[in-house]
């Protein structure tokens, strides 16, 4: 465990060094991410100057959904960014090095590109969440405060597990077919549907976003729990869903590795 922590830290340092060598480019990527965040917040704040609520949610609630979406997405990106490179790792033979070294290959693939820029993105997001929190929690009793707050944190972690599982599934697919790596970019697009509360979508789409492609569970459920809008059944569903997805993802990865080890390259 300690060794893994050391390796992860080292990989993070190396990723940082790499981004620092290309500092202008990195600054541009960072700037782009800030621009996007700023414009969306501007949009959300501006729209509430014209309407009192959206789908029954106040400005603070819509902002909470948007910020929580960013929080889960950014942390997921920090932890598993390397998976986006898995296609290249296979083509260039880096995968073979990961497999012969005494470090879990999936861990290595995930941590190979710890995106330092995303650490910086966390600052405004966390800052704004801290600004929104007291405004939402103002009327809560101490007990509800503790309960909903705890659920929020747990469901955010649960969202990370879902994000991780989806990425591992795509990585397994890539390892298997050696060409499906673009699928992961589809994920990047679809996950953007989680910026707004999922209640705005048609019931059919909501079902899809819950069960087929569980973006709702991943980024909307934590906020709903905090607002006290999530039934106990749905909370159970959220954890069951991520557990099942994780199991399927890890099994697919194992099988894909086995397949990789039996084909010529």
């Amino acid at each position: 465990m300690k060794r893994y922590w050391q390796v992860w830290k080292r990989l993070a340092v190396m990723a940082f060094l790499m981004q620092f060598t290309n500092r202008w480019s990195s600054l541009g990527w960072l700037g782009g991410k800030f621009v996007r965040l700023a414009f969306f917040i501007l949009f959300i704040v501006s729209i509430f100057r014209h309407v009192p609520s959206v789908a029954g949610y106040s400005l603070e609630a819509v902002a909470l959904f948007f910020l929580t979406f960013n929080l889960v997405d950014i942390i997921a990106q920090i932890l598993i960014r390397g998976i986006y490179m898995v296609g290249r790792d296979i083509r260039e033979g880096d995968m073979d090095f990961y497999l012969i070294q005494p470090v879990n290959a999936l861990f290595r693939v995930c941590s190979n590109l710890v995106d330092f820029l995303d650490f910086l993105m966390l600052i405004p997001v966390v800052g704004l969440i801290l600004w929104v929190f007291p405004r939402i929690l103002a009327g809560y009793s101490g007990e509800a405060l503790l309960m909903n707050g705890l659920l929020y944190v747990l469901l955010c972690a649960n969202g990370l597990v879902i994000a991780f599982s989806i990425h591992v599934l795509v990585a397994a697919l890539t390892l298997r077919t050696q060409q499906m790596e673009e699928t992961i970019w589809m994920y990047r697009d679809l996950v953007n549907l989680g910026r707004f509360p999922v209640d705005i979508y048609t019931p059919f789409l909501q079902v899809i976003l819950t069960f087929v492609f569980p973006i709702a569970v991943m980024v909307s459920y934590p906020s709903k729990a905090l607002l006290g809008l999530l039934s106990p059944q749905k909370i159970v569903l959220a954890f069951a869903l991520s557990a099942a997805l994780l199991a399927v993802a890890l099994e697919s990865w194992k099988r894909a590795l086995k397949h990789y080890s039996s084909v010529s390259s």
């Binding site: 480019s25 600054l27 541009g28 782009g32 621009v35 414009f39 949009f43 501006s46 100057r49």
Partner: peptide, 28 residues
């Protein structure tokens, strides 16, 4: 050789400020 990042930033700014996400009338 480091023009990719700045270009990404430019593109996002351009999309928002051209109204490709929402009509600009929303803004103050």
């Amino acid at each position: 050789s480091e023009s990719a990042g700045p270009r990404f930033c430019f593109e996002l700014f351009l999309e928002f400020s051209s109204g490709a996400f929402f009509p600009l009338d929303v803004l103050p």
